[in-house]
Design a protein around this nucleic acid. Structure first.
Lengths: 210, 210
DNA sequence: AGTTAAACTAACTGGTTAGTTAATTCTATG
DNA sequence: CATAGAATTAACTAACCAGTTAGTTTAACT
């Protein structure tokens, strides 16, 4: 679980509540989540949540922040020392994919957040998300200037990458639900940061390359 | 609103309830939707919903079925008379995109359904969705045999296309939420079946072509 | 006009759930 | 050890909401 720099040292109960909340919100969404369930999973009394964090909306915002609040920072760090735009793009995709695998609650939360028009998305997290888009725009612009990439709509490329990754990741339960689903689909890897992301990188690169 | 062949002739109240429910479920999700709100929008007493359709789950299943229940049929019809795999792939993408534009409730409902692991997805609709995947697999296999497409993971291509389309479509409210969002992103078309899908077609075709 | 069934509604019910309160236990420090 | 403040809890409350009920209106048919 990622933490904002300011919140490095939080009490044990605080952390357990955040983790439990991330799990419940990721499974049930904001409206479907129950504060009692979160308290039970965290092993604390429900009132402890209100004492440490606050009401349901505040808790949700805290979860969102802790779980996707510094994705941009991670990606920026990974690509900063790379020169080649093509490799930058690959690392961009790979880093996001690894993030999704390491923190499996992120994908469902992001999907529902998009679906609800970002109703509960704290502005600071929105800024972080658009910083990710801007990183990609920079890569694509640089590649175009160097004559290796075509002119594209950066936001569409972003959506193709991020949309594919989070949709693939969350599709796992549906892919296994019925026995009539072709094995070629059923048996695909749950992890996206393995061979799947390698294939995705190839496809995206091929699409934008001159 | 698409209707199953069996349900062509339904009462006025039934139709109004379905439409209102599609709107509310699309805005709030299953857990967030309120039966009273649906009744109010439909202009009927809440009990009328239970009289005509049944409980919340039944109503939701009915909405899902009416709204995405025959997408595969539509796509199959559109591509059946085309020979060229490249054009088939383009029409596949374009038809799905048009469907999403014509029925704007579909994208949020699909996203939340994927996010929740298809918890409320009726099996018959799941079959329809995987029929869409199979249609694409067929196109890609044919193209490979004819030597115009590369070897790919069809499900990943499906996810790239469908994931991109529904994520793009639902991203509209977030893209407009803050005034610091770059105009290049803010001012993108809400409609996906215009120039956006044309660009998406180009990118996907370029990615899979030999 | 009278009868019957279908369609519809106002008002209610009971279970659920976010949030609160008042009291108790733990912990650190002089 | 004593005490103050922080952390935690059991039990409660008020609002909410899915689903029901008992009764009324509408429409079709004889």
């Amino acid at each position: 679980m990622n933490l904002p720099p300011s919140a490095e040292k939080r009490s044990d109960a605080f952390m357990r509540i955040l983790e439990a909340a991330a799990g419940v919100f990721s499974e049930a969404g904001f409206a479907g989540a129950r504060m009692d369930e979160i308290a039970a999973r965290a092993g604390v009394n429900k009132a402890t949540i209100y004492y440490h964090i606050g009401d349901k909306e505040t808790l949700y915002a805290e979860v969102i922040r802790s779980v996707i609040g510094n994705t941009a920072e991670t990606i920026a760090r990974e690509i900063q020392n790379i020169q080649d735009p093509e490799e930058k793009l690959m690392i961009y995709i790979r880093t996001f994919a690894r993030n999704i695998d390491v923190n499996p609650q992120v994908a469902p939360i992001m999907m529902r957040e998009v679906a609800s028009g970002g109703k509960h998305l704290p502005e600071i997290v929105a800024r972080d998300i658009f910083r990710i888009v801007n990183l990609l725009s920079g890569i694509l612009k640089e590649g175009k200037k160097k004559g290796v990439f075509l002119e594209t709509i950066p936001f569409l490329i972003h959506i193709m990458v991020i949309g594919a990754i989070i949709t693939y990741k969350t599709s796992a339960p549906i892919r296994r639900r019925y026995d009539w689903i072709p094995p070629a689909i059923r048996n695909l890897d749950d992890k996206i940061s393995g061979n799947i992301v390698v294939e995705l990188e190839k496809l995206i690169l091929k699409a934008v390359k001159k």
